[in-house]
Simulated scan of single mutants.
Amino acid sequence: MVVRGTLPRLWPVPSQEEIASIVRMTDPVLRNLHITQTYHVLTIAMTDLLGEENVSWCAYATWASKTAGFFIRKEVVPGLIRDLLERADAMTRSMAGGLPEDFLGTWAAPFGLQALLTRALQQIADEIARQLSRGNLLVFEELAPLYAAMLEHFSGGERYDQGTLDRFLSRLSRGPVSREGQDLLIRAFTHYYEAMFEQDPKARAERIFLANALVGYHEQTRLQGPLIGALHAPLRQVFLDEVVEFLGVSSTRRANPLQEMSLRGTFGPLAARLERLWRELSTRALMRMELPDGVLRLGEDIPALNAERDFPPSLARVEHPELVSLMGTLDRTPNDTAGSAARDWGELGDRMNLIVDLFRTRQQDRVLYDQPFTFMQVDALRQGRVPHGHL
């Protein structure tokens, strides 16, 4: 018998057409906010199938999407630029004395270089926002319709029915993610369906964790391109282009190809150092996740559940053979949060090592059912407006 949730339904479950209309939105800021809210509504609705004790992948997606919104709206950009300019000041001053006045004249002063750097950083921030918005849409477009379809097809079922499961899975494509296949999702939604009818609480928790981890693995594999694009935005090239462009509009004579080559050579070492510094700062900013009860630093070990244990009792030691195998593949320390910190967020294995511990520690944390936005903000969204206040 299915254990159904009792959480209040404040908004209706999104239809396939409503999800498609969000996908079609052209405003990345508004679209991200709708994506975040839709994941939350799906999180609550999924308790009708899985019960309330264990959250589905949609709960984590809600807060990951909300975090992405800070970058898509470029709210973190002023602070990042300020931090980089402060740390870059010594670099620009040390370089200024050796810059050829023939090329930049009075703009060889540090404040001039910082003005050009600020312009370059704005372009890089635009590229990071574009890449994260692309990833946000990529995942939502594939996964939100599946969770909505799961609610449509599986609700009301009182006993396991292979035909019902097969009809649902027929919408998914066989094959590995690398070839646009959805084998991981086929396995994940099979375990979700089986968890609906599992009476043993520990076995149900393990199946839901396994399903969440498989969806996360698929999602993060799909996100590899956008994440690398965001982390490796080419500040060096953009900064050098800004320097050359300034020369072209400010000098009494334009640089010929040899002069441009010389200019790029002169500023190349500085540009390379600035790019390394930017990647350090931006990666640190990107490696964070806002949760209802605080900010999670992804470069640090996932906090244990409490002082006594790392994970909920039902997930302290996993027994399901497929889950044991998956943890052996994805988790460097399968029964311990120590060592979960991500060293390189651009590396899929490093991300998944952290993500499975995040999913495992928080699977029964009811704070993940919290609303991401206020009622007034949701009302503004439903009217097609970007809400006021902290988002």
Rank of each mutant, 00 (worst) to 15 (best):
T118I: 00
E53K: 14
Q259T: 12
T118S: 14
D365G: 04
K202L: 03
L286D: 01
V386G: 04
R273C: 00
L10A: 09
F197Q: 09
L210F: 15
R130W: 12
T221Y: 05
N353T: 14
I124P: 01
E17I: 06
Q220P: 00
E52A: 06
E308A: 12
A341K: 03
Q199C: 05
T266V: 15
L235E: 06
S251D: 10
E322T: 03
E300C: 01
T329C: 00
F140Y: 15
E17L: 13
S170Y: 09
T36H: 07
A68H: 14
Q162I: 13
C58W: 09
V2F: 01
R332F: 04
H218W: 12
W63G: 03
Q371Y: 00
S250K: 13
Q16N: 05
H390W: 01
V238N: 05
A144W: 03
L169E: 08
K66A: 09
L84E: 02
D166M: 09
A271Q: 02
A68V: 00
E127M: 12
A188W: 08
A108H: 03
S173A: 15
D183M: 01
P201C: 07
R87V: 04
F239P: 00
H232I: 02
Y160K: 15
V386D: 01
E206G: 02
F197G: 07
N212V: 07
T118F: 13
